[in-house]
Design a protein around this nucleic acid. Structure first.
Lengths: 137, 137
DNA sequence: ATATTAATGCAACTAATTTGCGTTAAAAAA
DNA sequence: TTTTTTAACGCAAATTAGTTGCATTAATAT
């Protein structure tokens, strides 16, 4: 028999769709307390198999899942992950990356994580900086 | 008091120096059975603090450690990690990567993992392929 | 409606890493 | 060189992330 559509799967998929950012299993487990963590892991596994999401470990070793914008199975060198070190949000940015490998090397897959400050946080930071200047005691 | 130089630390550092490839804790634990695994983890932690090595999680979530060629503390966008899916070796390749971030985003750190086939394995593969052709039964 | 079996919940397990604590051994001080 | 100080060590136990087994529940094909 084929796969089944269940409430839990639907709920998790909806959650992915309303969150641009990458999601950690732990986040989902907390968000969906009504379901067992095993169920969450199995749902993620199932979505992976269906090519609905993709998985990537951040530089500090934490697994993140991302909804796939294009469902072409594998995800090649046309996106990367950005983690804001201020708000901790992770987003998946679609942009071609130029990779030049040494002679004789061939490429299968690319996993690129960038840490930095996102636009929102940069704006907030520059705002609070100028406030500090104004209100110095 | 400051940090101490011990036999175990020296041995692990030497091991790093004689291995171009990235090392997993598990590998080191096996290599240095004379030391407790906790000691290995603490040595790695200590080297990290001293900027002697850097840490990076591969796309399948396995932590790897790399000796730092330049000891300038942080490691910025001038290297990436290549894992050969044939021989499983991981090497750190120094090569500038062009990263173009969306407007308003600023960059701290880059962690790039590439999976593919290395030069050595590609050669072996093409060799065994041509042998197959010659010796077909 | 009923039968089939995918999906679930719970408990227990595994692997990777960390913490606590008493002991050992670098290296600073005597 | 000997003594003292405490960083580093070894061992056991804890923690965290993720997995497995199995009996039960609920989608869905008949």
């Amino acid at each position: 028999m084929t796969k089944r559509n269940t409430k839990s799967k639907q709920a998790v998929l909806d959650y992915f769709k309303t969150h641009r950012s990458g999601l950690r299993p732990e986040q989902l487990i907390n968000e969906f307390k009504q379901y067992d963590k095993v169920t969450i892991y199995r749902i993620l596994q199932s979505f992976l198999e269906d090519g609905l999401i993709h998985k990537s470990g951040s530089e500090d070793g934490v697994t993140h899942y991302f909804i796939c914008k294009t469902q072409q199975g594998k995800h090649f060198h046309n996106h990367y992950h950005f983690k804001c070190s201020q708000c901790e949000k992770v987003i998946c940015i679609d942009k071609e990356i130029e990779i030049e490998l040494p002679k004789g090397y061939t490429l299968d897959n690319v996993n690129l994580w960038i840490t930095g400050i996102c636009d929102d946080c940069n704006k907030k930071l520059s705002l609070s900086n100028s406030n500090e200047k104004d209100n110095k005691s």
